[in-house]
Design a protein around this nucleic acid. Sequence first.
RNA 1: CGGGGUGUAGCGCAGCUUGGUUUAGCGCGCCUGCUUUGGGAGCAGGAGGUCGGCGGUUCGAAUCCGCCCACCCCGACCA
Length: 390
Amino acid sequence: MRWSKAFIPTIKEAPVEAEITSHKLMLRAGLIRRLSSGLYTYLPFCLRVIKKVGDIIRDEMNKKGAEELLMPILQPTELWEKSGRLNSKELAMLTAKDRTGREFVLSPTHEEVITDLVGREIKSYRDLPKNFYQIQTKFRDELRPRSGLMRAKEFIMKDSYSFDVDEESAGKTYAMMESAYRSIFSRCGLNIQVVKADPGAMGGGMSHEFIALADIGEEENGIEVGQIFSLGTKYSKSIGATFLDKNGVEKLCVMGCFGIGVTRTISAIIEQNHDEYGIMWPLSVSPYQVLILPVNISDSVSRGLAEKVYNQLQERKVEVLLDDRDVRGGVKFKDADLIGVPVRITVGSEKAASGALEIRERRTGREVTVRADELIPNLMSTLQEENHES
RNA sequence: CGGGGUGUAGCGCAGCUUGGUUUAGCGCGCCUGCUUUGGGAGCAGGAGGUCGGCGGUUCGAAUCCGCCCACCCCGACCA
């Protein structure tokens, strides 16, 4: 992508609405814009990160045998009456009406819908265990939205729901999800602490929270980015999800549910990966892997070299952003630090004249000068290292 | 919902106390031209505002009064 064609609206100073670092940086680096309190547009740059995080989640969930599906956001209130959660204050539900006046819940979570589905479709112990997940927008009528994507009325969540034949099997699923979550957060570049938690509105038995350590955050100096619950038979009983066991006896599915706040995870990543100049994306979730920065775009030699490198990297499927804007070098350097692409290739007029350029790591500031024909192998090994560090 | 605070150009603010030389300013950003080009350049010119909204007081309101709305922070609640 060429920066001159991309929509990356960076700003020098953070608007006063933002207090915490991640919120400020997301505004400044052109990731989000506010529509209204607790409602944000994810700009193209942010959407790339959302996709990266989503792909890591999909990879780890699929490894554990979970299957992705997508359920409706609008849900009939009758289903929520069945589970007894229609008037749950904790879930802070938003509702919507159709033109006949029928009321729907704008889903804050999907236990009811998935249990209804499984109850209708799965009838035999032979079809269990099952684990379904989805990544979609959730709604909570937050009393007080705050801190950008940290607590929004509308946010992106990965939620999954497991169905097992008994507690023992459900326990294994629970442990598997815990390990999947550890891998997911680690691959996202997050330092996580797992703590025992109160199941709250979900009900059921055991629960653990995944806390990203940060000096802001709402509990224990950390940000809750995920939570897992063993639900027992609470929903299979109220909604009706049973199966026949080996002996032909009807039994209730033993359930678990597992959530990750995707957009909040991105806030947490920034809280843990930034410095005074801007974001320092872990390579695994960075919107681009490499930024090419020709210091002076009107110098034809460095422009030519930058274009050449840009093409080479694109051919190798490296996600590369070329800062081809006709602005002064200082502006580009500041923006480069702000948006936090992990590897920067600087093309300066002097060195370009002798066919050399610089590779710089955003996180460490480490910089090497290489000849253009040595660039690709050097860059590939730098990317490898970055990958292992995050 | 309780408490605190803020609304003046895209962003950051001054002006309000004491109403009238304010045709409402300043910095950044934006547009045009020239110069400049390794860490947010310089000069010149320019565009951009129902002063959050409605009502009231007054000869006259960004400024005083009332109501409403929006937004931010603390609390209760949550991925």
